[in-house]
Design a protein around this nucleic acid. Structure first.
Length: 493
RNA sequence: GGCAUUGUGGCCGAGUGGCUAGGCAGAGCUCUGCAAAAGCUUGUACAGCGGUUCGAAUCCGCUCGAUGCCUCCA
């Protein structure tokens, strides 16, 4: 199904500062690159939000029928602690501190990253390349940039010449900065710097003898600069010009700015048509930072093993919570907010579980196809998941009214309602229904049905002591009985 | 200090020149043996101060606050 032909999708392009209709370079196909994690410690929750936003975007583009290649890299080298000459590679530093091989650090935290993403029900990207797997490509690009006069070698390191580039190109166009202002506001660097200009950035860093991560190059042993890997990998897998580049807001400058500079210096063309930036996650109104303790790991939320939240929350609930905010807005995580999302999530899932059992009629009180288009309109407006979710709750109201027999629906509308909800909740938002299809659920259902029957017998005999005991003890186990017009149902919390 | 984003009812969070966001919490009602669940009803929110306009939460200016970047950071 090529839904994209009938659904006009608009995206907010950070480069233009406007919402633009998404028109892929090649019709029906999209190339998307997202800056992945530096695997030097456990992936943190804010990181997850960014990747989740792009997972949702990936899912929606797929849903619209685009043929999409989604590349999300793993940074396993080149990410420096700081920009001074003695700046140390993050991976190498961690390896040194823990006295293990750099690749052990990479392996450990790559596994952690994948593990967490899987819990959050992420779709794997089409390609997940690593920086260390593309050293040759990076060296080739550096050679090319030097040849074109936009980089210089000094003491075995190579730097990008920003002022030179700025003479013929516009450095800072993505982040709204001007080179002159940046020069005027440059802080004093403490160490002597071999860079010609403070704005210049490293393409290749010389490895001192004690450095453990090193590769041979025309400039001697060293390692690549961080900004370069994304240019190398995006160019290799998506071409010199591709459709969407995503990442966190904080990467806009300097990382993405440098990517543009590198690509334009080599290829002469702007590498990306649409720049998409996901906003930050705060906790209790403050930025999440390990240094202040205002930080929580995904697994600590899932297990409840933390001092910040009153209970454990499932990955599905956290995902639902994040989807209730627009990806370009700052989102604040708090105990109250998660509790509210959990209730909303359960309400939504309860409605989903009830659709199949709805009886149908010859007419519908609910205009399902109009509602369906409203859902698409929300998503087409720069992936407005909060508005989409508001529409989903509108459907929940109708489902509940249908359950009570207060409204009617035709069989075809019911099927449309069901398929649309399935598509948006499970396929697009990627929210899992944890009450469904886990092994043992059927037996549990049979068992609870038995207890419901016993309770009904007791109630019919006005033996309320027994009936209440069954109900209350089940409630204590997290199984809630719900008396409706057509008998009793239950839900598991 | 500079650049950028942002400030919505008790909480979270959409929207954007006139028309109900939504979820959670609260109150009342219906249903019920009692509950729960569900349904219905209910909130005159848009940081402050000015300005533009027939009309602004929505546009403009200023003030105050928050967040991000400016050094690695999703």
């Amino acid at each position: 199904m090529q839904l994209y032909k009938s659904q006009k999708l608009k995206v907010y392009n950070s480069l233009s500062g406007k919402k633009e209709i998404l028109e892929p370079i090649t019709e029906g196909a999209i190339g998307m690159y997202v800056c992945g994690p530096t695997v030097y410690s456990n992936v943190h929750l804010g990181n997850c939000r960014t990747f989740m936003s792009f997972d949702m975007i990936f899912r929606y583009l797929k849903h619209l029928g685009y043929k999409i290649r989604y590349v999300r890299n793993i940074t396993d080298a080149g990410h420096l602690e700081n920009d001074a000459d003695e700046g140390e590679d993050k991976i190498a530093k961690k390896a040194r501190l823990e006295r293990i091989e750099p690749m052990e650090v990479v392996q450990r935290y790559t596994v952690d990253f994948h593990n967490i993403l899987q819990k959050f029900n992420f779709l794997p990207p089409s390609i997940e390349p690593t920086a260390t797997g593309h050293i040759i490509e990076q060296i080739e690009i550096i050679k090319d940039i030097i040849e074109k006069g936009y980089a210089y070698e000094i003491n075995g390191s190579v730097y990008f010449n920003v002022p030179k580039f700025n003479e013929t190109h516009e450095y800072g166009k993505l982040s709204g900065r001007k080179l002159e202002d940046m020069i005027a506001n440059t802080r004093e660097l403490t160490a002597q710097n071999e860079k010609q200009s403070p704005q210049d950035f490293a393409l290749w860093k010389k490895a001192e003898p004690q450095h453990i991560m090193r590769w041979p190059s025309p400039w001697g042993d060293g390692f690549p600069g961080w900004h370069l890997e994304c240019t190398a990998m995006s160019t290799k897998y998506l071409g010199e010009s591709f459709d969407i580049h995503g990442g966190g807001m904080d990467l806009k400058f300097p990382h993405h700015e440098c990517e543009i500079a590198q690509a334009e210096a080599t290829n002469g063309v702007s590498p990306v048509k649409y720049w998409l930036h996901a906003n930050m996650l705060t906790m209790n109104g403050k930025k999440m930072a390990k240094s202040t303790g205002n930080n929580i790991l995904p697994d600590e939320i899932f297990s409840g093993d933390n001092t910040i939240l009153s209970k454990a929350f499932s990955p599905a609930v956290v995902r639902f919570f994040m989807m209730q905010a627009h990806y370009t807005s700052i989102l604040d995580l708090s105990n109250d907010a998660l509790l509210a999302s959990e209730k909303g999530y359960l309400k939504l899932m309860e409605a989903m579980n009830g659709i199949e059992g709805l009886s149908t009629s010859s007419s519908s009180d609910f205009d399902v196809s109009t509602w369906q288009q409203k859902c698409y309109d929300a998503m087409n407006d720069d992936f407005n998941t909060p508005t989409l979710i508001a529409h989903l709750f509108e459907a929940v109201k109708h489902i509940n009214a249908l359950k009570e027999g207060k409204e009617t629906i035709t069989e075809s509308d019911k099927q449309l309602l069901k398929s649309t909800l399935n598509a948006f909740i499970f396929d697009v938002l990627g929210i899992e229904n944890k009450n469904e299809s886990s092994s043992g659920t059927d037996k549990l259902a049979d068992l609870v049905s038995l207890l419901i029957q016993l309770r009904k017998d007791a109630r019919d005999n006005k033996d309320f002591a027994t009936s209440d005991k069954i109900r209350d003890q089940l409630a204590a186990l997290g199984i809630q009985l719900k008396d409706g017009k057509d008998g009793t149902t239950f839900s598991v919390n």
